[in-house]
């Protein structure tokens, strides 16, 4: 009996308590974001009330936000850019990933290495000259500047992830298809791609998330309110001078966070397996 009790005590102190501390640290900011966005201003700025709870939940902050700001436009911009860039990057990433995983040609190894290296290049290293390039292309202050530049960090990521997935698919099946008269591209589309679907979904989702969350380029290339994406519009448009409208800010942050959180909850299994696969191969 005492042995059993010892085991329970050890489990509480060795697992549940520390885990609860980590969960609190990870999730408290989201809880705070959530309750701040459903409080009215009097309650939000009342230091005497119990601040960790809501007594009068209200949609005021959301109403203000939708009435006064272009939040729907920003959401649409984010969707448009993220969807388009992840599609472009997946297409080019699948092509390049397949070539580097399967085909033998001079220079293939160098390209593989270059993919890996470019994946590591931080956006903050080149954002200043890239602004000149974007301007030269006539894309300054349009969302097309993001559609064009986001693939530079998405393609290396997709290619690198997909090389690993393609390599894990046995060659025999493809060779059989090719003996039966299928072309190289045909066998890639009909045999390899369907088998790599988990990897493709993971890469597409993660590309979408990376685009949705991108900040440096969007901040640098776009100055008009109506062309901004969520991640940049909320911190730049909703903070006016020294005035912080915290209720609106938190409501907007919530709106900007929910799409990726939802996307990721639907595909969590792909996500976790993709992440662990990537970490193992990396």
């Amino acid at each position: 009996m005492s042995r059993k009790r010892f085991r329970i005590v050890r489990r509480i102190f060795g697992l549940y308590l520390p885990l609860a501390a980590f969960l609190f640290f990870a999730l408290f900011p989201f809880y705070w974001m959530l309750i701040s966005s459903f409080k009215g201003n009097p309650e939000l700025y009342n230091l005497q009330a119990n601040r960790l709870w809501i007594t009068h939940p209200t949609l005021e902050q959301f109403q203000e936000l939708f009435a006064k700001t272009a939040v729907l436009q920003w959401l649409w911009n984010s969707f448009f850019v993220s969807f388009l860039t992840s599609m472009i990057s997946m297409t080019f990433g699948i092509m390049a990933g397949y070539a580097l995983a399967r085909l033998r040609f001079p220079g293939a190894q160098v390209f593989g290495l270059a993919t890996f290296v470019t994946y590591l290049v931080p956006t903050t290293l080149i954002f200043i000259p890239l602004a000149s390039v974007v301007q030269y292309l006539g894309l300054s202050n349009t969302i097309w500047s993001l559609v064009v530049t986001y693939p530079t960090f998405l393609i290396p990521f997709c290619t690198w992830m997909l090389i690993a997935y393609f390599k894990s698919i046995p060659r025999d099946m493809e060779e059989c298809a090719m003996i039966d008269g299928c072309s190289r591209i045909g066998s890639m589309v009909r045999i390899v791609l369907p088998m790599a679907i988990p990897g493709i979904i993971f890469s597409a989702m993660f590309s979408f998330t990376l685009s949705w969350n991108e900040f440096v380029y969007a901040l640098t290339f776009i100055s008009s309110t109506t062309h901004k994406t969520m991640s940049v519009a909320v911190p730049t448009e909703l903070i006016r001078g020294d005035a912080y409208f915290w209720g609106e800010l938190m409501a907007a942050s919530l709106i900007g966070s929910v799409p990726v959180a939802l996307l990721y909850s639907f595909f969590m299994d792909y996500f976790v397996s993709g992440l662990t696969a990537g970490a193992l191969k990396g």
Binding site: L23, A26, P29, P235, M250, S257, F271
Partner: peptide
Amino acid sequence: VRGALLLPWIVPTSLSVLT
């Protein structure tokens, strides 16, 4: 639990940092 702990990494950093 694993999913919940991943949230800080998924959500747009600029928005969570505002929080």
